[in-house]
Amino acid sequence: MTPEETWWEATRDQLLLLQFCPACRRYQHYPRFVCTGCGGHDLEFRAAAGTGVIGSFTVVHRAETPYILGRVRLTEGPVLLTHLVDLPDPHCDLPVRLAWRAQPGGRHLPVFRSADDGL
């Protein structure tokens, strides 16, 4: 499997994987065949904690139902492009946590919701 396939397969179990380089102890996303920190190839996958903060976001209005696109900086370091859900008042620097949206075929798409929504 390619790193990309491994990553998507893990979403079936609602696992958000990040590539980790033991040589430079650094996480990266999206998964690829090289560590962008040291150029090494011996990367392993680790499950992300699923916590982060909103770096920025935009409400996309060119759709029947507007949706919130966001850049979430994970606690481990990498930034994900994602959707922010159940967030009536999104703002930069808000803590968020991982949630999942089912996709056709059993995979899931990671999305993020408020970290303190009591759920």
């Binding site: 990309e4 998507w8 920025s56 935009t58 959707h83 703002h91």
Partner: peptide, 29 residues
């Protein structure tokens, strides 16, 4: 491209949504 695999599922408008997120961060900061 990695963008097709990891970003397209979230339907960003290209390029506007990126500039929009930059603007949001700028106004916030």
């Amino acid at each position: 491209t990695p963008e097709a695999a990891f970003e397209a599922p979230y339907q960003p408008l290209y390029p506007i949504s990126y500039y929009a997120m930059t603007a949001q961060r700028y106004l916030h900061t």
